[in-house]
């Protein structure tokens, strides 16, 4: 064989040998593939405490999502039977709105769906008492207390969006009340109740304050026993 022929043969063999390489398994990194090695996560607030509030979650993906990638946002709007007391609706582009909530803090999963693949974030949603007023039937300051008598006083609470607290008894379970001077007036042992009432007993003549704390709201009621 001539040198050229040998060189051609060697090159041909090298080319063939190069072409003969076995191929490694493909990288599985499609975000819409449940068995993909791609990672996705949602970031955003971990709790929302007022009905009507909105919150936004942000999707992080590695590798980055291509422009125009198709995925859908989902709260807990899909349900069967009667609507749950806490409802979070997606409003698009990672924005969610609390449509319904109560004083019960519930953990709701908000998700971005890539076909059958979901990436979720858990958010605590409920109504936290932001403000309240006492309801005594008449103006509370005008009440006359007689030693040895008791009266029921209701609490009218609202969240940060001034939406009345639903299921106030749950907020009452979290709350506390006390008398500054139990020798003048005392608060009876109170069970949480849907009406949000507490029972105050006048003990002896004098003046004192009944302090009630519900979530972050604190207020006092002046009791004067003649």
């Amino acid at each position: 064989m001539t040198h050229h022929a040998r060189a051609a043969a060697v090159l041909g063999v090298l080319a063939l040998a190069g072409g003969c390489a076995l191929q490694e398994p493909y990288v599985r990194d499609n975000h819409w593939d449940p068995r993909s090695s791609a990672t996705k996560s949602l970031s955003g607030p971990d709790s929302v405490f007022a009905m009507g509030d909105t919150f936004r979650v942000t999707l992080q993906a590695d590798p980055p999502l291509p422009p125009g990638a198709f995925y859908t946002w989902r709260g807990n709007e899909m349900y069967e039977g009667p609507p749950p007391p806490t409802l979070v609706y997606p409003a698009g582009d990672g924005l969610f709105r609390v449509v319904s909530s109560t004083a019960t803090f519930e953990v709701i999963a908000v998700s971005a769906l890539f076909d059958g693949v979901a990436v979720s974030r858990q958010v605590r949603v409920g109504q936290r008492v932001q403000s309240y007023t006492f309801s005594c039937g008449v103006a509370c300051d005008a009440l006359t207390w007689q030693a040895g008598t008791s009266r029921s006083v209701s609490v009218l609470a609202a969240d940060a969006n001034q939406v009345p607290i639903r299921r106030i008894e749950v907020a009452m379970q979290r709350g506390s009340w006390l008398s500054r001077d139990p020798a003048v007036a005392s608060v009876a042992a109170t069970t949480a109740n849907p009406a949000g009432t507490i029972t105050i007993s006048a003990v002896a003549a004098g003046t004192t304050w009944i302090v009630v704390r519900l979530d972050r709201a604190v207020d006092s009621l002046r009791v004067v026993v003649p």
Partner: peptide, 26 residues
């Protein structure tokens, strides 16, 4: 096709089946 898939296509052309076909052929 697998890499280009971005969801929302008709059934049968989803990412797992595309990957499976690619890997099987390989």
């Amino acid at each position: 096709d697998y890499r280009a898939y971005q969801g929302g296509d008709s059934e049968g052309s989803d990412a797992p089946s595309l990957y499976q076909q690619a890997q099987s052929a390989r």
